[in-house]
Design a protein around this nucleic acid. Structure first.
Lengths: 149, 149
DNA sequence: ACCGATTCAATTGCATGCAATTTATTTGAG
DNA sequence: CTCAAATAAATTGCATGCAATTGAATCGGT
């Protein structure tokens, strides 16, 4: 087999994941626009609806995002009055993120989003679950790889 | 089942794809740094190594990127002397991207990247191929969904 | 208690992504 | 042929992502 075929775009898992991620994000846009959220803001709200009153660090570990991305994003959500940001009294280094009443209530308007997406894409649940499981497995493998530092 | 469980982060295929994409990109970073390329620049070079002398529009369709992203990125690759950008003589609206000699030769130094990544992640080829196939299927389904305009 | 190492969030700088608009060029209906 | 519509790239503006650095607070060994 030609060694160059290993560099073909359609043979790259990385490209399939990368392109798929962006296309899926675009699919969410019109639904999220109704909530006044961007995709990353939506993902952040998902995490907070599951677990409220968490530190920026904890949120970052959950979302695989660092403070460089989260700090401005959380300031935006604060400005939208969906969350509050307060220094942890026990450890002033940490900032605790908490949902406001508006933030809690927004979940009601988000409840039908997964169903709408599912209907649009039209792929069986079993297949979606299998895909998600495999991606999670890859994630876990990648996590174990020692990084440079 | 609790309807709210459909909003759980770990149940979202979108989040799995989104997070996995970013983690995989990070895995490429140290290898691409040796070539002096960013991840998106690398993906663009992959497309050009397969098919040279293509328009920005064609490249965009291949990579699922628009001119807003590609124009500055291609200018950067031009500055790195890996490609040239020239107006199409037959249709002055188009810009034709072509590899320079340096751009062609860079492929040699990229040939071992897929193998290195494969060894790092340690997931069987069969599984990676299956994953890629499923992602491609989702991509195709998503492509068929009529967009707002 | 002290102080160097560590931790956490914020900041800075750079590179995407993409919607929306603009500019230049081409197309095509009449 | 002519001009409005369509097309391609570039530009603008905004929102990420993330590496690297900074600043404030805490930890921990002595």
């Amino acid at each position: 087999m030609d060694i160059r075929s290993t560099l073909k775009l359609d043979n790259q898992l990385c490209f399939a994941v990368y392109a798929c991620s962006r296309e899926i994000t675009k699919l969410y846009q019109p639904l999220l626009r109704e909530l006044g959220l961007t995709y990353t803001q939506y993902i952040t709200m998902l995490a907070l609806w599951e677990e409220d009153h968490v530190s920026v660090k904890h949120l970052g570990q959950r979302l695989y995002l660092d403070s460089g991305t989260l700090t401005p994003l959380l300031k935006k959500l604060e400005h939208l009055q969906l969350i509050t940001r307060e220094r942890d009294k026990q450890d002033e280094r940490s900032v605790i993120i908490a949902l406001t009443e508006q933030g809690v209530q927004l979940q009601e308007r988000a409840l039908n989003i997964p169903e709408k997406l599912f209907c649009q894409v039209g792929v069986p649940t079993r297949q979606l679950d299998a895909l998600r499981t495999q991606l999670t497995e890859i994630m876990n493998k990648v996590q174990l790889i020692p990084q440079n530092p």
